[in-house]
């Protein structure tokens, strides 16, 4: 078992009085790709936001490289090497495509990713680099969102429903690019509604249900009916 890069310990998250996550224990090893699946509202986005520092948690509930980062601010966590590709892309509308990428590299961490390598990965972005990000198609915007996260040269990258609302052909393009992204020692957590997509690119998975982990296991050997049970919460 390789070293654990990130782990959560009885992670709880709240929106005001509403509790969205209950005592979640999840771990990602160095170089590992972990899928997070679950129905709408299960708490997948909340989990990623907690890890990235956008939801408040208690310090020791998130451990990363031996540090307790649960209470750190999102900008501190970014400097530590965790990047989030947020649900719904959320590009900066006032910034051009290239500026969106450049600001992703704000942390100035060293690594293989820079403007050139992102443009190599998604050549269409180079053609559109001067455009406002709002003028791109959904798929191209998703490429910018992924490129923006890569520009930080993270050790752990969190993908939140990168295929949401995109045409199948675009989803295919983006998923074909994934191995090239995750290949070089990068660890990833992938949230997807499309279970088979998520399982096909990951080695392990967690299935969330109403803020709790309902099932966890090996992505390649898990039985589909077990997932259906955990997913829908039916017995």
């Amino acid at each position: 078992m390789p070293d654990t890069l990130l782990s959560t310990h009885q992670l709880c998250a709240f929106y005001g009085d509403f509790q969205a996550l209950y005592d979640l224990d999840i771990s990602v090893a160095a170089g590992e790709v972990v899928a997070i699946i679950g129905a709408n509202g299960a708490g997948k986005t909340t989990l990623l936001r907690s890890i990235a520092g956008l939801c408040e948690n208690e310090s020791q509930q998130v451990q990363y490289r031996g540090m307790s980062i649960g209470a750190q601010r999102a900008d501190q966590i970014a400097f530590n090497g965790i990047a989030l590709v947020p649900e719904g892309r959320q590009l900066f509308p006032s910034l051009s495509v290239e500026e969106n990428l450049i600001i992703g590299g704000q942390t100035k961490r060293h690594g293989p990713w820079n403007l050139q390598s992102v443009y190599q990965l998604f050549p269409i972005l180079q053609e559109r680099r001067q455009m406002p990000s709002t003028q791109l198609s959904g798929g191209q915007q998703q490429m910018v969102a992924i490129g923006r996260a890569l520009m930080a040269n993270p050790d752990l990258i969190l993908f939140d429903e990168i295929s949401l609302g995109l045409a199948p052909v675009i989803i295919k393009t983006i998923y074909e690019a994934l191995p090239g992204i995750i290949g070089e020692g990068l660890s990833a957590m992938i949230v997807e509604q499309d279970i088979s997509k998520a399982l096909s690119v990951s080695s392990r998975f967690y299935c969330l249900q109403e803020g709790r982990s309902a099932l966890a296991g090996d992505s390649q050997t898990v039985a589909r009916e077990d997932i259906s049970k955990a997913y829908f919460g039916v017995d």
Binding site: R73, A74, D75, P86, Q90, S94, L95, G104, T107
Partner: peptide, 15 residues
């Protein structure tokens, strides 16, 4: 401009 657009996402960029 980034912070003006979206404070949360700007924080994710290390700002």
């Amino acid at each position: 401009r980034a912070v003006s657009d979206n404070q949360d996402i700007a924080q994710l960029m290390g700002l």
